[in-house]
Design a protein around this nucleic acid. Sequence first.
RNA 1: GGGGAGUUAGUUCAGCUGGUUAGAACGUCGGCCUGUCACGCCGAAGGUCAGGGGUUCAAAUCCCCUACUCCUCGCCA
Length: 614
Amino acid sequence: MKRTHSCGALRASHIKSEVVLFGWVQNRRDHGGLIFIDLRDREGLTQIVFDPGLSKDAHALAESFRSEWVVGIRGEVRSRGMQWSKKENKEVPATNPNLATGEVEIYVSYAEIFNKAETPPFEISDHVQTSEEKRLEYRYLDLRRPNLQKSLITRSKMNAATRSFFHENGFLELETPFMGRYTPGGARNFLVPSRLNPGKFYALAESPQLYKQLFMVAGFERYFQIVKCFRDEDLRVDRQPEFTQIDVEMSFVTQEDIFTIIEGLLKRLWKEVHNLDLPTPFRRMDFDESMAKYGNDKPDLRFDLHHTVLTDLVKKFGAEGGVDARMLEAANLKSGLVKAMVIPAAHALSRKDVDELEAYVTGMGAKGLARARLAENGDWTQAPLFKTASPALKQAILDATGAKSGDLILFQFGKESTVNTIMANLRVHIAKKLKLIPEFGAGGQWNFLWVVNPPLFEFDEETGIWHAAHHAFTRPMDECLPYLEAATFDPAKVYCYRYDVVLNGFEIGGGSIRLHDPLVQAKVFKAMGISDEDARSKFGFLLDALKFGAPPHGGLALGMDRLAFLITESESLRDVIPFPKTQRGTDLMTLAPGDVDEKQLRDLYVKSTPPVKA
RNA sequence: GGGGAGUUAGUUCAGCUGGUUAGAACGUCGGCCUGUCACGCCGAAGGUCAGGGGUUCAAAUCCCCUACUCCUCGCCA
């Protein structure tokens, strides 16, 4: 028997033809006489009919069929015909509108069992909820579910479209090693002991960052790769320890050239998957604006809520202007921040709602959630922090935030980074609560954005040292170069050619124009307090490479998993990864990571010292 | 590393302030059924209440510890 069609292929046009289908038994409906089964393969479901009048043997065999048995059938495609509808009190077509193959069914003349199956631990079906734990334990069964099949098929299409897009645009698909040398900074690395070099370790690549720059030095001009990356950090709903990037690097380009290429790729992907024409160019926003208005560098702009920075205003009014002592103290911190967010009256959050929000923010380390409700008569109610506030201060806050009577204003103040984290999360949390955006999924809005021109350095509040906010080879903006000179040194004023592409509040990619000039490179290292010696030991090969005629170059990496997760509107990143890991980085199916025996460790010159259990 | 939620039948869950035989739905098994399509009807089986310790006359229920899963902050682009 040779298969002629998939289980998703047959239509009315196939009626009367003889077909052979192979697949899994989704479902059996035994009427004593007639038996119906739904046969499933990756393409869909087809209804199969066993009529004892047509083949007694096949019918007898079908009586034994159970869920998930693998079977093959030969039979004739027939129309589903007409059916009496009690509701409409007349004959109606007996088609099943839920199935692509719903117009037809196969009358079986011959059937064969390829393999029986034990009763699966959960039903293979999109409408049955199963805990993620069980799904991961039996991932190969979970992967039979149509939803997951669809997501992974989409992902495969995305891979294919990505490759053809880049090949059409003159990019070369080049490979880089996974096992490389450990370089400090950035994410924690997975280490691989070297048997041939006792006591030495490879690091699994966090990304092909350095190698792709070397491709540019080598003169390949346009490189891309769909590549696995490894980071030994804590997992999140949108983070896995091994993940896939679409990695890109180009020579002789400006930031804008890179945007154009990436926008072109994203356009292609959305066309391929959703048959949608994304409008380009995407919106651009300065990093500083994003931080001020949204509290992070990946704002979800599908809704309007935004922050207002009140630090300077609070300082200006001061205690004599009626500012609460705690708020004033926060504003005067070295890196203090006071922020407000207006919830318009239309959204009517109750006192209980706001108390819930307070519980949410205190869970992130906030001391509380200061608030002010603006009554119709202009009074500030439920506003304990503004008991002492002067009318002028209140008016200034209204002017700054644009709040009107009936609105609710929420405040956070304290350390800059904490306030931003809390307010950024709160903004999204409220938007979901108010149904301005769905809990997950795009809600019909694909809001793309480039966040550009961030500062090159970041002030570490704990150590009081300026260090690179990004990788050490990001190019400062030309007009900022003077601030790297000793005489006019001011790291806070150095901005750089660095960019993130954001979709609906998720960072889907980021990159930069690289620093290809060794002279400027040296100044940046100096500003970061990296000695020549340090630089040599960490990046020696790249520093050397830059000396031998490195072209100006830049690039970007897109997070393929996140992209797939967003484009399929999945609930979790785990739904677009065939074999994902749990939040603790374990694989519930293979039980990795697992034990190894002493001899293996000895061969690697490694000693394991797990924590002693109390 | 911090905070939170959870773990009861194969699966998803209910089980109140502790009380004697731990329930439901789906699934499974058996029977009936020739137009169902998440078929229907009748019947049955199925439980170390995550593991350990404690309180109590009595623990799924209260307390402590451990393990695991998820969410979240830190971390991480």
